Amino acid sequence: MPEPKSAFDATYPCDFYEPAELFEPDQMYTVPEIGRLLQGLEPDAEVDPDTEAVLVDWAVPWVMVHSEDMVVAEPLREDGPGYYGLATEGDSDAESDAESEPDADGDEAGADESA
């Protein structure tokens, strides 16, 4: 149920970290770890399942909003989570490789079809 602003003692700006402020450049994080970092906790901090669910609810849209500044990696195990990290200059090699891989039609992705 919505509450009037007057019901609260104070309101605060809704500021979030930028990926460069949150991540170590050489580390990759799971969504639950990102949720912890967004709350100022260590990535491996123990939290109860209900709190972790809330942290994940906050982390998913944050990841989506900041996707241009991030990279993603496949899970380390078949049943494991994906990992996200800060996009750095060295990551451009993977991006250019993906752009030159053939698509389902055998054409290179990102190729100029008018050529």
Rank of each mutant, 00 (worst) to 15 (best):
M1S: 12
M1P: 06
P2N: 13
E3G: 02
K5C: 05
K5E: 13
S6P: 03
S6N: 12
S6R: 14
S6A: 15
A7P: 02
A7E: 14
D9H: 06
A10G: 03
Y12F: 14
Y12K: 10
P13Q: 08
C14R: 12
F16I: 05
F16L: 05
Y17P: 00
A20D: 14
E21L: 09
E24M: 05
E24H: 11
E24F: 03
P25H: 06
P25V: 05
D26Q: 07
D26M: 04
Q27S: 10
Y29R: 02
Y29C: 02
I34E: 00
I34T: 12
G35F: 03
R36G: 01
R36L: 08
L37P: 00
Q39Y: 09
L41W: 05
L41Q: 09
P43I: 00
A45T: 03
D48A: 03
D48S: 03
P49C: 01
T51D: 02
E52C: 01
E52H: 00
V54H: 03
W58L: 10
V60P: 01
V60M: 13
P61F: 07
W62D: 03
V63I: 14
V63Y: 01
M64E: 13
S67N: 13
E68A: 10
E68M: 07
M70A: 12
M70P: 07
V71C: 14
V72Y: 10
V72F: 12
A73M: 15
E74Q: 15
L76A: 15
L76P: 04
R77Q: 14
D79W: 13
G85V: 04
G85S: 08
A87N: 08
A87H: 09
T88E: 12
T88I: 11
T88Y: 07
A94K: 04
E95P: 00
E95S: 07
S96R: 13
D97P: 00
D97E: 11
D97F: 06
E99R: 14
S100E: 09
E101F: 04
E101Y: 04
P102R: 06
D103Q: 08
A104S: 13
A104D: 14
D105C: 04
D107C: 08
E108T: 09
A109V: 12
A111W: 11
E113Y: 10
S114T: 15
S114A: 15
A115K: 14
